[in-house]
């Protein structure tokens, strides 16, 4: 078992935003967390990386490779972030600093966790750009974020998250801000990265149609609680909880009958 979350609760300013949730993600598995806005899914993601706001109160346990992450000091957590667990956020517009070149941002984790020469970092940046399918890798690593498209920015953000080769990648709604064709490409990229590197993936979304294309197992969050869990196909075939049904209905209503639906 690579990641075991048990009895995780998060409260911010006296409000319980995540209430006693438990799940586990074995090595190499693609795991989905789904829920409406405010269901606590992003807070769960931030807790996995110790990035919750300082006033947040976390109880329970997050065991990653048999190491307890809850209560870890920030300095120790920094050694885990990027190196062992990476995260991709929702907004490609703002997830990259406007002041630094893509290459420098993509290799940030590498340069922190390993010692690289300038030439090695440059080479690594080009290699990463190629792996995430950025066009013209040699020149795009020298570009600033505002000079490339939203999809390309998200690819760069993914490159930054996988740079140091983490074994677990958390993707917090990485396709929500993108249009549908780019969405499909990014999903493809995530699937390929997890297959090639054997990386576990935690994919957070509110869109069942997206989740269905990428995850094997899933949990459904509602009001900070796990209301349903199991394999994606079984949950979809036989949704038990009203909120799951609502999500299924929403997916049906919108993009459910998309032609490229799972191969």
């Amino acid at each position: 078992m690579s990641l075991v979350v048990s009895g995780l609760s998060i409260s911010i300013g006296g409000t319980l935003v995540v209430d006693d949730i438990s799940f586990s993600v074995p090595d190499g598995q693609r795991f989905g967390i789904i829920g409406e806005s405010g269901s606590g899914k992003s807070m769960t993601a931030l807790a996995l990386l110790g990035l919750l706001p300082e006033e947040a109160l976390v109880t329970g346990s997050i065991l990653y490779q048999d190491r307890e992450l809850v209560g870890l000091r920030d300095r120790d957590f920094a050694a885990v972030r990027g190196d062992q667990i990476g995260i991709v956020f929702q907004e490609p517009q703002t997830a990259l600093s406007p002041l630094r070149r893509l290459g420098a941002q993509m290799t940030a984790a590498l340069r922190i966790h390993y010692t690289l020469s300038r030439a090695q970092a440059q080479e690594a940046a080009i290699d990463l750009a190629t792996r995430v399918g950025l066009p013209n890798p040699e020149s795009i690593v020298r570009a600033y974020p505002h000079q490339v498209s939203g999809g390309q920015r998200q690819r760069a953000a993914i490159a930054a998250a996988i740079a140091a080769g983490p074994d677990l990648l958390v993707a917090d709604e990485p396709t929500t801000a993108l249009d549908v064709t780019v969405q499909a490409e990014i999903l493809d990229l995530f699937r390929r990265l997890s297959e090639e590197g054997g990386t576990s993936l935690i994919f957070i979304t509110h869109d069942l149609a997206v989740l269905r294309q990428i995850a094997d197992r899933m949990i459904v969050l509602d009001g900070g609680r796990v209301v349903e869990q199991g394999s994606v196909t079984s949950v979809l075939r036989n949704p038990q909880h009203p909120s799951t049904r609502a999500l299924v209905a929403a997916a049906h209503a919108t993009a459910w009958k998309r032609p490229e639906a799972r191969p």
């Binding site: 990386l49 990035l51 920094a78 050694a79 885990v80 972030r81 990027g82 190196d83 990476g86 995260i87 956020f89 907004e91 703002t94 997830a95 990259l96 600093s97 406007p98 941002q105 940030a108 984790a109 922190i112 966790h113 953000a157 930054a160 998250a161 740079a163 140091a164």
Partner: peptide
């Protein structure tokens, strides 16, 4: 967000 993203890289 990019500061959070950089923190997530271990900065």
């Amino acid at each position: 967000d990019f500061v959070r993203a950089a923190r997530a890289c271990g900065v």
